[in-house]
Design a protein around this nucleic acid. Structure first.
Lengths: 226, 226
DNA sequence: GGATCGCAAACTGTTGACAGTTGTCAGTTT
DNA sequence: AAACTGACAACTGTCAACAGTTTGCGATCC
């Protein structure tokens, strides 16, 4: 009998703590729990329909991920990042992601690179000719790009810093005007990968990310001219 | 009144969960809890003199740090890494640390670089002329090097991957023969920093880390010629 | 009127107990 | 002897209650 023992990955986490982690993380990243806001364990546990035990376990993981800050006897707060910290995160992301594309240029199978190119085609056609739309596929592109490096710890590190960046940019939604520009820059990166020119791809990617950072910083300072 | 409210940092963590996290992490990194070993919550909580609640919170953080793996209803296990994973970790470390030295070459104050140089002097004199001794200051050197980049998230990321590397190398103690060589390589890196030559420092550092990886891989394969 | 003190409510840290699952092992069957 | 079955023991996931701390507020005092 060719039954397969041990279902390796079961989709939804079967534990309250695990599911609460995902729910809370989503709530933080989509702004339901705003930066600086306090997480009341009693209220949250009631809202989630669980007890405080598994909730606290989930919160510990969020603290480990750097999305919340726990102060003893005083509560946990959604982290609020400064412009400087956002810059530091981007610097870290640049270090990781440029290294990833260098690896991708050297080792990624051509087919996988082609997939990313086709994904950009799909994005463009669904965007239409108006360059005012948002660019929801941006995160997807970068995720695919990084996976080309075939290095799980690297992917994980980028996922972590990506979440912090998303939280740091909480109020500064991407300027839609950059959607078209970003897509074009993405294309040049894929082109460099097709040429197996890792240095060039890294240079283009660094410029792309720096541009993204500057955009975020501008929006941040416009919102809070502190 | 110039009293300082809010003691920003109190040394030892005042909570059971926080202290258990540090104790458990140390136990994992020094081999008291071996790779593949299971963490029995009841036994551990009794050994630590606490209840299972805070212990589980500590374990959640260890899982988030990637030092243990939790399997639902089956327990948590100290992670056991393959040679491939060790290589991936080093690849990640190279990405982060080379970027750090490039930043350091550009922005670090000369005084801070000098401090690292003096620290190497101290290490050498305490090592004596015999090149057979171990090199306990190795981790300290790399930690100082990275801090020169003045980027806390980058430091944190390197701390995380550093711990995983330490766990992955659990049984493969550094070959003492490399102590002298490593110190010499460290000197060349500091020299490049003094010249503010980030590219050169990065190149030297990458070679140094690759050499360290190959040493670890050799010891690993010798111990387990699987 | 403003600052200080003290109490009470709210909340976090911790505990012990309960419930459901997993793994084991004897006993039985083939 | 190998395989299946069923019950028991051990352990994890979860909950509700207790204890100590922090915080807000009102009374008191200067």
């Amino acid at each position: 009998m060719t039954e397969q023992n041990r279902p390796a990955k079961l989709g939804p986490v079967a534990t309250f703590a695990g599911r609460s982690l995902e729910v809370l993380r989503d709530m933080i990243l989509d702004g339901t729990l705003a930066p600086g806001e306090r997480l009341n364990e009693v209220h949250l546990s009631q809202a989630l329909g669980i007890s405080r035990g598994p909730l606290r376990e989930a919160i510990q993981r969020l603290a480990s991920e750097g999305l919340v800050e726990a102060v003893t006897h005083r509560g946990v707060y959604v982290r609020s990042f400064s412009a400087r910290e956002l810059s530091d995160f981007y610097e870290l992301r640049i270090a990781l992601e440029t290294h990833a594309v260098r690896l991708a240029a050297r080792y990624a199978p051509q087919e996988r690179i082609d997939e990313v190119g086709r994904m950009l085609d799909d994005t463009e056609s669904s965007m239409g000719s108006d360059s005012t739309g948002s660019y929801p596929a941006d995160a997807d592109f970068h995720a695919r790009l990084v996976r080309l490096a075939a290095n799980p710890p690297l992917v994980q590190a980028l996922t972590d810093v990506g979440r912090k960046i998303q939280l740091a940019r909480a109020r500064s939604a991407h300027q839609p005007r950059r959607a078209r520009t970003a897509l074009d820059e993405h294309r040049t990166i894929v082109a460099a990968l097709n040429d197996r020119d890792g240095d060039h791809a890294a240079t283009l990617l660094e410029a792309h990310l720096t541009s993204s950072l500057n955009n975020a910083l501008a929006v941040l300072r416009a919102a809070e001219p502190d």
